[in-house]
Design a protein around this nucleic acid. Structure first.
Length: 133
RNA sequence: UCAGGGGGCCUGAGGCAGCCGCGUGUCCGCUUUUGCGAAAGCAGGGGGGACGCGAGGAAAGUCCGGGCUCCACGAAACAAGGGUGGCGGGUAACGCCCGCCGGUCGCCUGCAAGGGCGGCAAGGGAAAGUGCCACAGAGAGCAAACCGCCGAUGGCCCCGGACUUGUCCGGGGGCAGGCAAGGGUGAAAGGGUGCGGUAAGAGCGCACCGGGGCACUGGCAACAGGGCUCGCAUGGCAAACCCCACCCGGAGCAAGGCCGAAUAGGGGCCGCGCGCCCGUCAGCAAUGGCAGGUAGGGGUGUUUCGCCCUGAGCGGCCCGGGUUGGCUGCUAGAGCACAGGAGCAAUCCUGCGCCCAGAUGAAUGGCUGCUACCCUGGAACCGGUCCGCAAGGAUACCGACCGGGGACACAGAACCCGGCUUAUGAUGGCCCCCUGAUAUU
């Protein structure tokens, strides 16, 4: 009785270079996370999660990553952009935020990404490490 | 015995269910244009199912001690540097743990001496040497003299009297001088208390306490005990340097081992090719390096012209090194549970049983419901409670019931153990101390 799901190849980003290049893709910010999407040239749906130390200690960071994985596991097979890298960056409220609410927000963010729309690039704060003084 | 408070040790880190997931091991199918093989098959890759297992007491800090790995080294000693510091035991080892000794604080008991219980601590050496001891104080390591005490049947000066006129007597004052008891300063002032003693005093003398030395007795020892002896300045700080005794080679799983794509570069062999001119540098020269031109070669679909590249190498095969990455190391161990035994204890011995995380952008989870904890609201159906002889009634004080809200800590294995330290909610169990009440003797 297994439904004939076409096995969509979903894999995990493991290279630092992949994360850095995704940084140049489409950016959609929501309350609990930031979604980056970028075509990867026929490598299937891939995803990665970034949670910096600014968010909290190891327990908090791991918990956030698990919740993000769970969100992506539910959304990517149907809503994911084919042959794109998806990177979720954790934000401050992402641990306490209601799970169902975040699932909704992820759906909307993926919709916008599919239409090619993102947040204006000018809004982005320059990364600290690259900032020149 | 009960209640409250403080402390220590052990347990333990909410539970149950449903749906959807993750990592890993074993087994069983499926699949594969992967490798070997004639094939069967074996090994590998992909995907699926069943079953098992899947974070902590601190996984943390990375402060000690080890295992393991590599590096260095002939051995040992010394030096340097670092560490430890009562004694005995435990241990693979330790700076850890246990027991004991001495010190110190509190409580109890006792007329006292002393004894008992509990707590605390970095507890070798201060007559080997150097250094420091602020402030206050007169004085802080040579002891000293501010206030004070004394100032004598002794010394000097002054006054009075006597006479033999420079002596004696008397009393008072002063000085020289004596003292270190009392006051005062300080963390600390050179043993303490009492009696004697004295002009006043002082181990000056004596008694007791304290201290040094000597041997003796007991103890494995730290040390304790009594005895004899010495009137006894020989402070404190060693967490200032230092001395003594003992211990320590260095770096760490990103250790270490193996495989090794594309691309670039290195070396070797083979095949083909390597013409000419000019400049410059090195060299005696042969020759070599560098730069340029040209013939030649290649590209622009072909030819002419033009343009561009190249102009001495090109092609093939093989070898070794490195980068990305992958595999390994990687979890059966100073292991855990139970029972018996030795020991005051830490701990050890024996028997029997068990296998208990191995991830790597990093698994051990996500969501929902019920329950457990705290606060709060409702209702008199139920159990308490109150009223009543009873029937029955009252009451949200307690429980149960029905709702609402809140809280749910510290924290995530990363090669593995033994400790220490730090962070932190609930629940039990045991032990010790203190306070109060009650009962008994």
């Amino acid at each position: 009785m297994v439904p004939p799901v076409i096995p969509v190849a979903i894999s995990v980003l493991t290279k630092r270079a992949d994360f850095l290049s995704a940084n140049a893709g489409t950016r959609n910010a929501r309350a609990g996370f930031v979604l980056l999407t970028r075509p990867n040239g026929g490598k299937g749906i891939r995803f990665g999660i970034t949670v910096t130390k600014k968010i909290g200690n190891a327990v908090v960071r791991n918990r956030m990553k698990r919740r993000f994985r769970e969100l992506l596991r539910a959304a990517l097979p149907t809503l994911g952009l084919p042959d794109h890298d998806h990177v979720l960056i954790g934000r401050a409220g992402g641990v306490e935020r209601d799970f169902a609410l975040m699932a909704e927000e992820l759906t909307k963010a993926l919709d916008r990404a599919r239409e090619g729309k993102g947040d204006p690039a000018g809004d982005r704060r320059p990364r600290k490490g690259n900032r020149k003084r």
